[in-house]
């Protein structure tokens, strides 16, 4: 055992200091501050302490509940569509066929786009009168105008989100599948298990943690989505696609309603924190946290 100098002992802290300072100032502090801010209301230029009044108003606000409901609908649809689609693709790519990396690359390109850019491309496809897909699909559905109907607008956002989000889920699932030894499925197939039985009895149980992590990532993406909604529907038509994250964004930026918006972000913090805990717990059971 060599004696450790003071420098040596403080080295780890010196190394992590810049990172922690940054995270502390721009992530941790604002998060804690939003809790405090949610107890205040901005009247003219000053902030007045109002206690839990913001939350009372929030929970009594039908717009907020409607927004939360839309988030739930969008979230459930987004997460289930992406996970099913990504699973199917992951099982196809698992076979390590020739050219797999080419196909994977193409599927990944949309994930590299900003959601604003993605939204603009999809809006252009469904623009009333001139949108290509609008003109192809609209007449088939009885002169349906996608962006003029709540359901239609939501499905355009969902299509864009699925287009953009599949790649990430697919990558996580593929990474998980790689850790399953091929001998296991081979052994099952020698024992006479068919493809479906192999998947259900061998692959699926081993993939549970990966699936769980993927589901958490997808849910967080869904709950906090703003960009696609802003660029495709802007909450419309009417308020039919005004999800809670969009309400938060608009309340703060367009209406300067900070106390109220802080109350919304506190609620969203707890939803996200709940998901983060599920994530941490999954990793813990996998001993991935050292």
């Amino acid at each position: 055992m060599k004696p450790q100098s003071r420098l040596h002992r403080s080295l780890p802290y010196v190394l992590i200091l810049p990172a922690l300072l940054c995270v502390g100032t721009f992530i941790l502090y604002p998060t804690l501050f939003s809790f405090r801010l949610s107890l205040y209301e901005n009247r003219r230029a000053t902030f007045v302490y109002v206690g839990l009044e913001n939350f009372q108003r929030l929970f009594g606000n039908t717009l907020f509940w409607a927004g939360l409901g839309r988030t739930a609908i969008y979230g459930v649809l987004y997460v289930s569509l992406v996970i099913v689609f990504a699973y199917l693709l992951a099982l196809v790519f698992r076979g390590r066929m020739k050219g797999a990396s080419f196909f994977l690359t193409v599927i990944f390109i949309p994930w590299m786009l900003s959601d604003i850019v993605a939204g603009i491309l999809w809006r252009w496809l469904f623009l009333p009168r001139v949108g290509l897909l609008q003109n192809m699909l609209g007449p088939l559905l009885g002169d349906y105008s996608f962006l003029a109907e709540g359901t239609g607008a939501l499905s355009v956002v969902l299509a864009a989100a699925l287009w953009r989000g599949t790649a990430f889920a697919l990558l996580l699932l593929l990474a998980g599948l790689q850790t399953i030894p091929g001998e296991l499925t081979e052994a099952a197939s020698i024992d006479g298990a068919d493809r479906w039985q192999q998947f259900w009895n061998v692959t699926w149980p081993l993939m549970l943690p990966t699936t769980q992590v993927t589901l958490v990532f997808l849910s967080i993406q869904a709950i906090n989505a703003v960009g696609l909604f802003l660029s495709i529907t802007d909450g419309g038509p009417g308020r039919t696609t005004e999800v809670v994250s969009l309400q938060l964004y608009k309340q703060a930026l367009q209406f300067n309603n900070f106390g109220f918006a802080s109350a919304v972000s506190v609620v969203m913090f707890f939803i996200n924190a709940g998901l983060a805990l599920i994530y941490l717990n999954t990793l813990r059971t996998q001993n991935a946290l050292d």
Binding site: S34, A252, A276
Partner: peptide, 11 residues
């Protein structure tokens, strides 16, 4: 796991 939108206002 905490996306930027949660601390939007304080920021």
């Amino acid at each position: 796991m905490l996306p930027g939108i949660v601390n939007l206002i304080p920021l």
